[in-house]
Design a protein around this nucleic acid. Structure first.
Lengths: 340, 340
DNA sequence: CTGAAAGCGCTTACAG
DNA sequence: CTGAAAGCGCTTACAG
């Protein structure tokens, strides 16, 4: 009668016994570049397969100090830009056999309390986007030697590296595009008031407008969310002198702007009002919106962020970095190109 | 001169020394319900804070056989329904101090090779949605005692538990709604040909139509993606007898259908063609679409999935379960309600 | 190239 | 309630 072994965890020792080698040999068979003869490795691999052995990465991490786990703290997952960041990051990390441990932050501008527990998982790095780390967490991470990289938001905390798009220049370029289109009354819908990224885009936008003699820009915040952006747009369109050009700090909010303008106010886009977004998410090119937007591809941001993470892991004493990823204006049909 | 201790990992032993207690006492201080005096616990907590100690969950998992990590394998993250699953699951799991290790599968119907490595992370369970496990992985998980729960897709593999909506009934109800609206020519856009969920919705749809004497249903597949769905819709609308009612197996594909119908074919929705979706994602209620859809909230599916996971962890010998989560038809303005 | 041994940071009987 | 000790599954000098 066979003993039921179905529930027992198979370890290196089990494989070693089965293959007739030492437990260290089994370890070496699963360590790329380790000193082991091909013959022994083969024996081990065969035994491992027969037994259904899986190396325990968590046990390994205990001694290597590498978990191959990268924490990703993120919010606004319903916003397609952020969803894309998750996809691209996951894809990128698998090249190096690493995986994402997800901390989905509640929206808002305050740090997620749950994230304070991130260090318990011995993550190799922490990547943030659409949310922020508490000053305390930042200190803890520094002490623990865990690099933090923020995507798409410049940090107020020194010591946190960031990867962003060319926010200021993008704001300028968009303003110029709208000026060229003959628009007269400009509005900006930012993410949240506390966001530096949102602020810098606004500054670029205002800068170019000011140079053209335009000081007046209506400003609202849409919290990177659809409904909140819709409310902001209604406020703008309800005003005495409604804008004929709206720049939204994210495509998702731009979608809300177009929906509200068309369906609730009967306005034509771009004849009555032009709408410009930011990010160039996949949905932006769909016929329903065909949105003029500043391309800031999640893929490029993520690639740079991972590169930065690896540099910081490699060289923990390296100073925090600020990197910019170039983008470009994508002109589609949601913005007028000639004077009205 | 102080020694630089900034990069050294703080362990229980360090805290123990600092607090003047044994290392086991430190462990107990961090174990809810452990036998320890309040006074000792306080001392330990204080020392831990002073030192910046974080319990190492991976080390703990080595002895408890619980990692508090749940693997989530998912694809179609650009589809808002799946993004919502991520959010809801993450939210739900934090109640029990667990977190998601993400395996973002490339789209398509074949299992993700990267997922084969999931067991190395000693995850407590594997949740799948929009993707599937290889038969081999299924076996490995069973052997390792790691439960698998699939959301929103009935498995062809026995031994995998599933949590789905009422797909058949939903198909019937939608058909009836469209019949009541006086529609004559019906089309169905499924996810992928291999998906049971998609097939079952179609069967329900056909069943109710057949009872009304309608045998003819045009069928296309949109791969749960926007562009692929758009192509499918063009095929339908280009045909000699284009449908006046299109049921899409997901809201996201329904958005594509509405966009194509309106913008490329100049059709009015619902006057010329009605469109019905599935899921009731947040965007479905936006003015641009205001989509009639079958509500199958990600939150409810996720809650049931976690409940199931916990039951299976608790009782590993339990048979695979099939659970259905009830939904309801949400009638908005993308479908006609009276005979044309 | 190989094996025996120490040690990574924890939990948990065990004895007191 | 407390501490000393064993052990979870690995990697990595060390000696051969």
């Amino acid at each position: 009668m066979k003993k039921d072994t179905s529930r027992k965890t198979i370890t290196e020792s089990d494989v070693a016994k089965h293959a007739g080698v030492s437990q260290s040999a089994v370890s070496r068979a699963f360590t790329p570049g380790a000193s082991i003869s091909p013959k022994t490795r083969e024996k081990v691999i065969k035994a491992a397969e027969e037994l259904g052995y899986h190396p325990n990465l968590l046990a390994r991490s205990l001694v290597t100090n590498r978990s191959n786990i990268i924490a990703l703290a993120i919010s606004y997952l319903e916003n397609p830009f952020y969803a894309q960041v998750v996809r691209e990051l996951s894809q990128k990390l698998r090249e190096s056999d690493r995986h994402i441990l997800l901390f989905s932050a509640p929206d808002g501008n305050q740090p997620d309390p749950d994230l304070e527990k991130v260090l318990r998982y011995q993550v190799d790095a922490l990547i943030l986007t659409g949310t922020k780390a508490s000053p305390d967490l930042k200190d803890q991470c520094r002490k623990a030697g865990v690099p933090i990289v923020q995507i798409n938001r410049k940090s107020d905390l020194s010591g946190i590296s960031t990867v962003c798009g060319e926010d200021f220049e993008a704001g300028q370029i968009i303003a110029q595009h709208l000026l060229d289109g003959g628009h007269k009354r400009f509005a900006y819908i930012g993410g949240t008031e506390g966001s530096n990224t949102s602020r810098i885009r606004e500054e670029g936008f205002r800068d170019a407008l000011a140079k053209a003699g335009i000081k007046d820009v209506m400003v609202r915040y849409g919290a990177n969310k659809f409904e909140a952006a819709a409310i902001a747009v209604r406020e703008l369109l309800d005003s005495k002198m409604p804008p004929d050009a709206i720049f939204c700090a994210s495509d998702y909010m731009a979608f809300a702007a177009m929906d509200v303008a068309r369906n609730e106010y009967g306005l034509k886009v771009p004849e009555d009002v032009s709408v410009v977004g930011f990010n160039d998410v996949p949905d932006a090119s769909h016929a329903a919106y065909n949105l003029t937007t500043y391309s800031q591809p999640a893929g490029a941001l993520v690639d740079e962020a991972v590169k930065l993470v690896d540099e910081l892991i490699e060289n923990p004493s390296k100073r925090a970095q600020r990197r910019e990823v170039p983008g470009e204006l994508i002109i589609r049909t949601s913005s007028r190109q000639k004077a009205a």
